[in-house]
Simulated assay, not measured.
Amino acid sequence: MAFSADELRVLRRALAIALHPAPLPDEDVQDCLRLAGAVDEAVSEAGRLRAFLLADLVRYRDALPGSVGGYLELLQDALAGGYDPCPEDLAALRALRSRPVAASLLERCQVLAERSVRARLAGRATPTAAPAPRSRLLALPGGRAADTDPERPKAPAAPPKPAQPSERPAAPKPSEVFPPRRPVPPPQQRAAG
């Protein structure tokens, strides 16, 4: 995941506030909430891409031997993303082991499969799917509440509106996530005289 210069600025401020709580202006709170939303969307998109990759992998595996090149490439991508090879992958690679790429992938997948089995037998779960999305950021410690009167009772926060089943969350526009850069005017030179 890559951050723009503006997003890094917001992240740096948020980390500084987390380390040294202080009151935040409303604009900083909104910037932090926007950044948290962008990170949530990126994590969600990564999960969707992973699901798409794994579905493609199954389609290519089912179409073997005609889809050898695509299958081996997709399997390499999936393994790089933390995919735990299944028995069908091992069987397909054994059938293709006359190819050098398939033979090296078979060795790699056998090691990963053995490690996964040992982990399950030892009672540890191995990640086989995308991590669960993190909870939404609702408030920052030391934010706007820090500059209010401690004697004054705080109003309860309104619960977030649940999404309707037919509604999809609105994805931010690229211009919202990565605001356009404003050109910096060249410094004016003084005329001697």
Rank of each mutant, 00 (worst) to 15 (best):
A2N: 09
D6T: 13
D6C: 09
E7L: 04
R9C: 06
V10F: 05
A14S: 07
A14H: 03
L15K: 11
L15E: 11
A18F: 02
H20G: 06
H20E: 12
P23T: 08
L24Y: 02
E27R: 09
E27I: 14
V29D: 00
V29W: 02
D31K: 08
R34A: 06
R34P: 04
A36L: 05
G37I: 02
A38Q: 09
D40Q: 05
E41P: 00
V43K: 11
V43C: 08
E45C: 00
G47K: 06
G47T: 01
R48D: 15
L49I: 02
R50I: 01
R50W: 13
A51E: 13
L54I: 05
L54H: 01
L54R: 01
D56A: 04
D56S: 14
L57I: 13
L57A: 09
L57H: 01
R59C: 05
Y60S: 10
R61A: 02
G66W: 11
G69N: 05
Y71A: 02
Y71M: 06
L72I: 15
L72T: 10
L75I: 13
Q76P: 02
Q76F: 04
A78N: 05
L79F: 04
A80C: 07
Y83G: 09
Y83I: 03
P85I: 03
C86K: 09
P87G: 15
E88D: 15
E88G: 14
D89K: 13
A91P: 03
A92W: 01
A92M: 08
L93S: 14
L93V: 07
R94P: 00
A95E: 09
R97D: 00
R97C: 02
P100E: 13
A102D: 00
A103P: 00
S104A: 15
S104P: 07
L105G: 03
L106F: 01
E107I: 10
R108Y: 12
C109W: 13
C109T: 07
V111R: 15
L112T: 00
E114L: 05
E114W: 07
R115H: 11
V117K: 10
V117Q: 15
A119C: 10
R120T: 05
G123P: 08
R124S: 07
A125L: 15
A125H: 10
P127Q: 15
A129I: 05
P131E: 09
A132F: 08
P133T: 03
L137D: 03
L138N: 08
A139L: 09
A139F: 13
L140A: 08
G142P: 07
G142C: 02
G143P: 09
G143D: 14
R144L: 08
A145N: 07
A145H: 15
T148G: 10
P150L: 14
E151M: 05
K154S: 13
P156A: 12
A157K: 06
A158H: 08
K161E: 04
A163Q: 04
Q164K: 02
S166C: 08
R168L: 12
P169E: 05
P169Y: 01
P169A: 14
A170S: 07
K173P: 03
E176T: 06
E176D: 14
V177Y: 00
F178L: 11
P179T: 10
P180K: 04
P180L: 05
R182T: 11
P183L: 12
V184Q: 04
P185E: 06
P186V: 08
P186A: 10
P187C: 12
Q188V: 11
Q188M: 14
A192F: 06
G193V: 12
